[in-house]
Protein backbone atom coordinates (compact mmCIF):
# COMPACT_ATOMS: atom_id res chain seq x y z
CA UNK A 1 0.00 0.00 0.00
CA UNK A 2 2.82 2.42 0.97
CA UNK A 3 4.70 1.62 -2.23
CA UNK A 4 1.56 2.19 -4.29
CA UNK A 5 1.11 5.53 -2.53
CA UNK A 6 4.75 6.53 -3.13
CA UNK A 7 4.48 5.53 -6.78
CA UNK A 8 1.25 7.53 -7.16
CA UNK A 9 2.90 10.54 -5.49
CA UNK A 10 5.86 10.19 -7.85
CA UNK A 11 3.53 10.21 -10.87
CA UNK A 12 1.58 13.19 -9.52
CA UNK A 13 4.87 15.00 -8.83
CA UNK A 14 5.92 14.41 -12.43
CA UNK A 15 2.56 15.74 -13.60
CA UNK A 16 2.92 18.95 -11.53
CA UNK A 17 6.37 19.61 -12.92
CA UNK A 18 5.03 19.25 -16.42
CA UNK A 19 1.95 21.31 -15.65
CA UNK A 20 4.18 24.26 -14.75
CA UNK A 21 4.84 24.91 -18.44
CA UNK A 22 2.05 25.14 -21.04
CA UNK A 23 4.76 25.50 -23.70
CA UNK A 24 6.31 22.18 -22.67
CA UNK A 25 2.88 20.53 -22.86
CA UNK A 26 2.16 21.98 -26.27
CA UNK A 27 5.63 21.18 -27.56
CA UNK A 28 5.23 17.51 -26.70
CA UNK A 29 1.93 17.26 -28.58
CA UNK A 30 3.28 19.27 -31.50
CA UNK A 31 6.45 17.20 -31.75
CA UNK A 32 4.49 13.97 -31.77
CA UNK A 33 2.34 15.03 -34.69
CA UNK A 34 5.06 17.01 -36.46
CA UNK A 35 7.23 13.90 -36.57
CA UNK A 36 4.34 12.02 -38.15
CA UNK A 37 3.76 14.83 -40.67
CA UNK A 38 7.46 14.96 -41.56
CA UNK A 39 7.52 11.20 -42.11
CA UNK A 40 4.38 11.43 -44.28
CA UNK A 41 5.77 14.33 -46.32
CA UNK A 42 9.11 12.56 -46.76
CA UNK A 43 7.39 9.53 -48.28
CA UNK A 44 5.76 11.77 -50.90
CA UNK A 45 8.92 13.60 -52.01
CA UNK A 46 11.03 12.53 -54.96
CA UNK A 47 13.34 9.80 -53.75
CA UNK A 48 15.99 10.66 -56.32
CA UNK A 49 17.04 13.89 -54.60
CA UNK A 50 20.81 14.30 -54.40
CA UNK A 51 22.68 14.81 -51.17
CA UNK A 52 26.08 16.24 -50.40
CA UNK A 53 28.91 13.75 -50.23
CA UNK A 54 30.32 12.72 -46.91
CA UNK A 55 33.82 13.87 -45.99
CA UNK A 56 34.44 10.65 -44.04
CA UNK A 57 34.47 8.51 -47.20
CA UNK A 58 31.34 6.63 -46.13
CA UNK A 59 28.79 6.27 -48.96
CA UNK A 60 25.84 8.66 -48.81
CA UNK A 61 22.39 7.36 -49.61
CA UNK A 62 21.03 9.04 -52.73
CA UNK A 63 17.63 7.47 -52.90
CA UNK A 64 15.54 4.39 -52.40
CA UNK A 65 12.06 3.00 -52.57
CA UNK A 66 11.22 4.13 -49.03
CA UNK A 67 8.78 2.07 -47.01
CA UNK A 68 5.48 0.80 -48.36
CA UNK A 69 2.41 2.01 -46.53
CA UNK A 70 0.81 -0.79 -44.55
CA UNK A 71 -2.94 -0.69 -44.08
CA UNK A 72 -4.28 -0.19 -40.55
CA UNK A 73 -4.92 -3.38 -38.56
CA UNK A 74 -8.02 -5.39 -39.51
CA UNK A 75 -10.03 -4.93 -36.34
CA UNK A 76 -12.33 -7.94 -36.78
CA UNK A 77 -9.41 -10.25 -37.58
CA UNK A 78 -7.42 -8.97 -34.60
CA UNK A 79 -10.38 -9.43 -32.25
CA UNK A 80 -10.77 -13.01 -33.50
CA UNK A 81 -7.02 -13.59 -32.97
CA UNK A 82 -7.25 -12.16 -29.46
CA UNK A 83 -10.09 -14.53 -28.56
CA UNK A 84 -8.45 -17.65 -29.98
CA UNK A 85 -5.09 -16.80 -28.36
CA UNK A 86 -6.86 -16.24 -25.03
CA UNK A 87 -8.66 -19.59 -25.33
CA UNK A 88 -5.30 -21.26 -26.07
CA UNK A 89 -3.84 -19.51 -22.98
CA UNK A 90 -1.38 -17.58 -25.15
CA UNK A 91 -2.00 -14.41 -23.17
CA UNK A 92 0.92 -12.45 -24.56
CA UNK A 93 -0.37 -13.05 -28.12
CA UNK A 94 -3.89 -12.16 -27.01
CA UNK A 95 -2.66 -8.87 -25.55
CA UNK A 96 -0.77 -8.03 -28.73
CA UNK A 97 -3.84 -8.73 -30.87
CA UNK A 98 -5.93 -6.50 -28.59
CA UNK A 99 -3.40 -3.69 -28.98
CA UNK A 100 -3.60 -4.05 -32.76
CA UNK A 101 -7.42 -4.02 -32.63
CA UNK A 102 -7.34 -0.88 -30.48
CA UNK A 103 -5.01 0.80 -32.95
CA UNK A 104 -7.31 -0.13 -35.83
CA UNK A 105 -10.35 1.31 -34.03
CA UNK A 106 -8.48 4.49 -33.16
CA UNK A 107 -7.36 5.02 -36.74
CA UNK A 108 -10.94 4.60 -37.97
CA UNK A 109 -12.13 7.00 -35.28
CA UNK A 110 -9.45 9.43 -36.34
CA UNK A 111 -10.46 9.22 -40.00
CA UNK A 112 -14.09 9.88 -39.04
CA UNK A 113 -13.06 12.98 -37.13
CA UNK A 114 -10.87 14.13 -39.99
CA UNK A 115 -13.77 13.75 -42.46
CA UNK A 116 -15.95 15.89 -40.19
CA UNK A 117 -13.48 18.82 -40.29
CA UNK A 118 -14.25 21.58 -42.81
CA UNK A 119 -12.25 21.91 -46.04
CA UNK A 120 -12.11 25.70 -45.60
CA UNK A 121 -11.72 27.76 -42.46
CA UNK A 122 -11.46 31.55 -42.12
CA UNK A 123 -10.81 31.85 -45.85
CA UNK A 124 -8.03 29.26 -45.72
CA UNK A 125 -8.03 26.01 -47.74
CA UNK A 126 -7.22 22.63 -46.21
CA UNK A 127 -3.93 21.10 -47.34
CA UNK A 128 -5.04 17.46 -47.45
CA UNK A 129 -1.47 16.26 -48.07
CA UNK A 130 -0.74 17.18 -44.47
CA UNK A 131 -3.70 15.28 -42.98
CA UNK A 132 -2.47 12.93 -40.26
CA UNK A 133 -4.15 10.24 -38.20
CA UNK A 134 -1.75 8.59 -35.82
CA UNK A 135 -2.29 5.95 -33.20
CA UNK A 136 0.50 4.48 -31.16
CA UNK A 137 -1.26 2.62 -28.33
CA UNK A 138 2.15 2.50 -26.86
CA UNK A 139 2.34 3.37 -23.21
CA UNK A 140 1.95 7.14 -22.85
CA UNK A 141 -0.11 8.25 -25.83
CA UNK A 142 -2.61 7.02 -28.37
CA UNK A 143 -4.64 8.92 -30.93
CA UNK A 144 -3.69 12.18 -32.69
CA UNK A 145 -5.38 13.82 -35.67
CA UNK A 146 -4.08 16.84 -37.56
CA UNK A 147 -5.22 19.08 -40.43
CA UNK A 148 -3.60 22.19 -41.86
CA UNK A 149 -5.37 25.08 -43.63
CA UNK A 150 -3.40 27.80 -45.40
CA UNK A 151 -3.31 30.40 -48.15
CA UNK A 152 -0.59 31.83 -50.34
CA UNK A 153 0.09 34.70 -47.95
CA UNK A 154 1.78 32.66 -45.20
CA UNK A 155 -1.36 32.55 -43.10
CA UNK A 156 -1.85 29.09 -41.65
CA UNK A 157 -4.10 27.25 -39.22
CA UNK A 158 -3.06 23.87 -37.80
CA UNK A 159 -5.61 21.94 -35.79
CA UNK A 160 -4.56 18.93 -33.74
CA UNK A 161 -7.04 16.72 -31.95
CA UNK A 162 -5.46 14.45 -29.37
CA UNK A 163 -6.98 11.69 -27.32
CA UNK A 164 -3.97 11.59 -25.01
CA UNK A 165 -4.92 10.98 -21.44
CA UNK A 166 -1.73 12.30 -19.92
CA UNK A 167 -1.69 15.69 -21.70
CA UNK A 168 -5.40 16.30 -21.32
CA UNK A 169 -5.13 15.68 -17.60
CA UNK A 170 -2.21 18.11 -17.38
CA UNK A 171 -4.11 20.76 -19.33
CA UNK A 172 -7.07 20.34 -16.99
CA UNK A 173 -4.78 20.77 -13.98
CA UNK A 174 -3.41 23.95 -15.58
CA UNK A 175 -6.91 25.31 -15.92
CA UNK A 176 -7.76 24.71 -12.29
CA UNK A 177 -4.52 25.95 -10.78
CA UNK A 178 -4.90 29.62 -9.87
CA UNK A 179 -1.15 30.25 -9.83
CA UNK A 180 -0.94 29.39 -13.52
CA UNK A 181 -2.98 32.41 -14.63
CA UNK A 182 -1.01 35.42 -15.84
CA UNK A 183 -2.87 38.66 -15.25
CA UNK A 184 -2.24 42.30 -14.66
CA UNK A 185 0.84 42.61 -16.88
CA UNK A 186 1.13 45.27 -19.57
CA UNK A 187 1.45 42.55 -22.18
CA UNK A 188 -0.18 39.21 -21.37
CA UNK A 189 1.24 36.15 -23.07
CA UNK A 190 -1.44 33.70 -22.05
CA UNK A 191 -4.86 33.69 -20.48
CA UNK A 192 -7.87 31.49 -19.86
CA UNK A 193 -10.79 31.77 -22.25
CA UNK A 194 -13.75 29.62 -23.31
CA UNK A 195 -14.54 28.02 -26.64
CA UNK A 196 -18.21 27.03 -26.94
CA UNK A 197 -18.41 26.67 -23.18
CA UNK A 198 -15.20 24.57 -22.94
CA UNK A 199 -12.30 25.87 -20.87
CA UNK A 200 -9.33 26.90 -22.98
CA UNK A 201 -5.93 28.57 -22.78
CA UNK A 202 -4.80 31.04 -25.41
CA UNK A 203 -1.17 31.99 -25.80
CA UNK A 204 0.62 34.44 -28.08
CA UNK A 205 4.26 34.67 -29.09
CA UNK A 206 5.71 36.85 -31.85
CA UNK A 207 7.71 33.94 -33.27
CA UNK A 208 4.90 31.38 -33.37
CA UNK A 209 1.65 33.35 -33.39
CA UNK A 210 -1.44 32.28 -31.46
CA UNK A 211 -1.93 28.90 -29.79
CA UNK A 212 -5.32 27.92 -28.43
CA UNK A 213 -5.69 24.74 -26.34
CA UNK A 214 -9.11 23.37 -25.40
CA UNK A 215 -9.46 20.53 -22.94
CA UNK A 216 -12.28 18.19 -23.91
CA UNK A 217 -13.65 16.00 -21.17
CA UNK A 218 -11.37 13.55 -19.41
CA UNK A 219 -8.76 12.55 -21.95
CA UNK A 220 -8.90 14.68 -25.12
CA UNK A 221 -7.79 18.09 -26.28
CA UNK A 222 -7.81 20.31 -29.37
CA UNK A 223 -4.94 22.62 -30.22
CA UNK A 224 -5.20 25.37 -32.84
CA UNK A 225 -1.94 26.97 -33.95
CA UNK A 226 -2.63 30.18 -35.83
CA UNK A 227 0.16 31.82 -37.81
CA UNK A 228 -0.28 35.39 -39.08
CA UNK A 229 -3.76 35.80 -37.69
CA UNK A 230 -4.65 39.47 -37.18
CA UNK A 231 -5.71 39.33 -33.56
CA UNK A 232 -7.11 37.26 -30.71
CA UNK A 233 -10.69 37.80 -31.86
CA UNK A 234 -9.99 36.26 -35.25
CA UNK A 235 -8.53 33.18 -33.53
CA UNK A 236 -11.53 32.85 -31.24
CA UNK A 237 -13.98 33.28 -34.13
CA UNK A 238 -12.18 30.57 -36.10
CA UNK A 239 -12.17 28.13 -33.17
CA UNK A 240 -15.83 28.79 -32.46
CA UNK A 241 -16.71 27.87 -36.05
CA UNK A 242 -15.71 24.22 -35.44
CA UNK A 243 -18.18 21.54 -34.33
CA UNK A 244 -16.51 20.86 -30.98
CA UNK A 245 -19.53 19.03 -29.57
CA UNK A 246 -19.43 16.70 -32.57
CA UNK A 247 -15.75 15.94 -32.01
CA UNK A 248 -16.39 15.37 -28.30
CA UNK A 249 -19.17 12.92 -29.12
CA UNK A 250 -16.97 10.96 -31.54
CA UNK A 251 -14.23 10.70 -28.93
CA UNK A 252 -16.72 9.56 -26.31
CA UNK A 253 -16.16 12.59 -24.11
CA UNK A 254 -18.91 14.23 -22.02
Amino acid sequence: MKRTLYFSCFLIGVMFVHAASAQSLLKKLKNKVSDAVSNTADKKTDNNSTTSSSSSGKPVNKGGGGLSNTPPPDVKAQMADAESAHAAKKYSDSRYALQQALMGVEIQLGNQILKSLPTTSDGLDADMTKDVVMSTQWGWSNLSIQRVWKNKSDKQLTMTVGNAGLYAGLAAMYFTNATMVETGNAKQNFKQVKVKGNKAIIQYEDSTGYTLIVSLGQSSMIVWECINFANEQEVMNTANSFDIDGIKKMLGEK
Binding site: M79, S92, S94, R95, L98, Q99, A101, L102, L109
Partner: peptide, 25 residues
Amino acid sequence: SYSAGKLEDAHFALQQAMQEVDLTI
Protein backbone atom coordinates in the same frame (compact mmCIF):
# COMPACT_ATOMS: atom_id res chain seq x y z
CA SER B 1 -20.30 -2.30 -30.90
CA TYR B 2 -17.80 -2.43 -33.76
CA SER B 3 -20.30 -4.07 -36.10
CA ALA B 4 -22.86 -1.39 -35.16
CA GLY B 5 -20.33 1.33 -35.98
CA LYS B 6 -20.10 2.46 -32.35
CA LEU B 7 -16.33 2.88 -32.42
CA GLU B 8 -15.97 4.59 -29.07
CA ASP B 9 -17.93 1.82 -27.31
CA ALA B 10 -15.83 -0.79 -29.13
CA HIS B 11 -12.69 1.05 -28.01
CA PHE B 12 -13.78 1.03 -24.37
CA ALA B 13 -14.75 -2.65 -24.47
CA LEU B 14 -11.36 -3.56 -25.98
CA GLN B 15 -9.63 -1.67 -23.18
CA GLN B 16 -11.70 -3.64 -20.67
CA ALA B 17 -10.68 -6.88 -22.39
CA MET B 18 -7.03 -5.84 -22.21
CA GLN B 19 -7.37 -5.20 -18.47
CA GLU B 20 -8.74 -8.71 -18.04
CA VAL B 21 -5.83 -10.17 -20.01
CA ASP B 22 -3.38 -8.18 -17.86
CA LEU B 23 -5.00 -9.59 -14.72
CA THR B 24 -4.78 -13.11 -16.10
CA ILE B 25 -1.14 -12.64 -17.07
